[in-house]
Amino acid sequence: MLSYLLRRLAGSLPVLLAVSIFVFGFVHALPGDPARLQAGPEASPAEIEAIRADMGLDGPIWSQYLRWAGHTVQGQLGVSTKTRQPVAQVIGERFWPTMWLTLVSMVWSTVLGVGLGVFSALRRGSAADQASMVVAISGVSFPSFWLGLLLIDLFSVQLGWLPTGGYGTWQHYVMPSFTLGIGVAAVMARFTRSAFVEVAREDFVRTARMKGLSRSVVAWKHTLRNALIPVITLTGLQFGFLLGGAIVVETVFSWPGLGRLLVDSVSFRDYPVIQAEIMLFSVEFLLINLGVDLLYAAANPEIRLS
């Protein structure tokens, strides 16, 4: 297991390196001169040059990259053009609201999705199965921002039960987390159903039934455990999807997270923040996929031994 972990870690390093070059190059393709933007409209050419040196934007491109990468690894991410605060601080304030929203959404949507998938698979072909699969494919097609607006209209504007947006109490989580998670629950349900149906056709399931085990023991202990292996992989992918989805959902519910920060930063061309955020998103995404691969290897000996 340890050698597998090391191999996978070594495998993600080149991707991380390429991602960092990509993010670095991409911000340099942004229109406008970031030093001039940072300096403000009344700065003299000398001041602009001083700020350029300060931001590490002088010298040949490769030395700029090395300096940037060195600073990034040490957590020195520069200063926000908009608020003049250190980027690490700006992002630090927004990190946990997004993480909590994503985690809460992930947990309930996985439980509901897997549950619904098994429910459908056990009643394959019944009206209940077809109904829940119609719900599932609709959930995938539902624009999350529209769902958010409809929920706000019903529960905040009409009924006054929940706050329209913001962050703080558990009431603030209800609508954003539902909006964010419903698509994932739908994908999970569809995927679990088909994985379950596939495993249920295997010989060992038939053997388990033949030796007299009850239907529920066969379903939960034999079939589900094997059907969950591919579901683990999907969970990782969906986590990335949630991180992306949070951008839109945070905008709808004025959630003080990384997603809304990214949208605001793009509008303000706050390029040190954009750079740090895109890097952070992709590092999170890579780490999640790494974690998922490890879980997968733990569940499936064929992978870690090959």
Binding site: V15, A18, G244
Partner: peptide, 9 residues
């Protein structure tokens, strides 16, 4: 590398 970013990001 392209897949290392969530699509909308």
């Amino acid at each position: 590398v392209l897949l290392a970013f969530p699509g909308i990001v």
